[in-house]
């Protein structure tokens, strides 16, 4: 799928939360791993994220959520991605996500959830594997 070019990743901060340390660290690590990374900045609506994913023609989307609003925000983001024809772009979530919510996120189409303590190279490896297998 991405032979001969860089993997394109959108890192996005949905909702009103401004805690962006994780999003920025992951964005930079993926960039250093040779991917082309677009970081949206904070306070993005689901519409804005779908638009940025569309504009950037990205291969994968990473959402950073620490405010506890993941069960409300994720379905709306998935819906907007769908309406942009981006249903097949894999979406990952990182942040403070209680274990019992992971299944609910998977059920709505989120490919993987990365909690506190995740190493950035786990995320790199996951993306590389996923994008080259797809």
């Amino acid at each position: 799928m991405v032979k001969g070019r860089k993997i394109r990743v959108l890192v996005a901060k949905p909702g009103l939360d401004g805690h962006d340390r994780g999003a920025k660290v992951v964005a930079r690590a993926l960039h250093d791993a040779g991917m082309q990374v677009f970081y949206t900045g904070i306070r993005q609506t689901p519409e804005m994220i779908a638009e940025a994913a569309f504009e950037g023609r990205v291969d994968v989307i990473g959402l950073s959520i620490l405010s506890g609003a993941h069960l409300e925000l994720c379905p709306r983001i998935m819906e907007h991605l769908g309406s942009k024809g981006l249903r097949n772009v894999p979406v990952l979530v990182g942040g403070i996500i209680p274990e019992e919510d992971v299944r609910a996120l998977n059920d709505m189409g989120i490919r993987a959830v990365f909690g506190p303590g995740t190493l950035t190279r786990e995320i790199e490896d996951f993306i590389t594997r996923m994008v080259t297998e797809d």
């Binding site: 009103l16 939360d17 306070r43 405010s67 506890g68 609003a69 409300e72 925000l73």
Partner: peptide
Amino acid sequence: DLPTQIGYDSDHPLAAAEVGKV
């Protein structure tokens, strides 16, 4: 909560997912 911190009432569209969260 975040809407209160950023100047949105609880019934604002941007507040919908975040009322009472943090």
